[in-house]
Design a protein around this nucleic acid. Structure first.
Lengths: 148, 148
DNA sequence: CTTTAAATTTAGGGTAACCCTAAAATTCAC
DNA sequence: GTGAATTTTAGGGTTACCCTAAATTTAAAG
């Protein structure tokens, strides 16, 4: 089921934001907060949230906020893994973590899994990004086993 | 005038294709050819072409094909510069020029000029990409001057 | 030069993803 | 419980895509 799952650039923004709040800061995600952060109207947030909900990426309890599903968490982690791997690459090139983060944001929902895994390998499977956040691992990105 | 000029991902595809035909292969660009290449209907091509024409990126002589304007050529070169610089970076990482090209295609209209110039610098201002195509220069991407 | 086939454009539709305001519904805090 | 704040619905609007069918124009063949 569930064919390919395509998330738009905008939806990716929502997922990353919600993940960071919900999973990394344990803050309950409210419509108005998202609206302020993304500089849109609350009604717009509700609408996008409903789309994400139809894609089973999150559950929406009317008037009470949202919670990512397993699938939503997986998708958000995929995006954040991509984001953070790109941050490493770009920090190397730009020599400026903040700019690297900005660039990564623009590209993180367009980079393929294979590319990200290749970069990951090239940098020795790093576990944290320049901002000290965890880089989630990808089972398809084989680490070289330690000898023994 | 002409504010910021934003080209969608799809429009970028058209520009790159038209540029390569017109400027690199000297082939007159016809609606049906573009339609076949991009796997859409001719009517769709006409429509997109009309949009690009309104943005002054090309001239459209009804029933006779299109020709990029100066502005269109500049935009296409910007996109192809980006594409080819990314190819260099990704060939380095993926060790496979074909895949590098595919990945570059996905990202080339999202990467910022600053990032591209930083990569360009990191690779010593290369003049050709892995497929031997010219990498257009960007005046803002200063080459180190040869001594003397 | 005319006819007909091929290429192209117009006309008319359709979808999806964005965005908004205003009004209704619900919750929260006093 | 009631009023203020939050959130959702209802109703609209745009833009970028895509399509088919019919009209137009060009080009090729006789």
């Amino acid at each position: 089921m569930d064919a390919e799952l395509s998330v738009t650039e905008n939806e990716a923004k929502y997922l990353k934001l919600i993940y960071r709040k919900q999973c990394e800061e344990s803050i309950k995600v409210k419509t108005t907060a998202v609206a302020k952060f993304l500089r849109v109207r609350p009604a717009t947030v509700t609408e996008v949230i409903q789309n994400l909900s139809e894609k089973n990426l999150l559950r929406h309890r009317r008037y009470h906020g949202v919670e990512l599903t397993k699938k939503g968490i997986a998708e958000a982690r995929k995006l954040l893994r991509t984001h953070r791997i790109l941050e490493i690459l770009f920090t190397d090139i730009l020599d400026n973590a903040q700019r690297a983060c900005n660039e990564a944001s623009k590209l993180d929902c367009h980079a393929s899994r294979d590319l990200i895994n290749a970069i990951c390998r090239a940098y020795g499977h790093p576990e944290i990004c320049p901002c000290e956040k965890t880089i989630f691992s990808d089972p398809k990105c084989k680490k070289k086993q330690m000898g023994g």
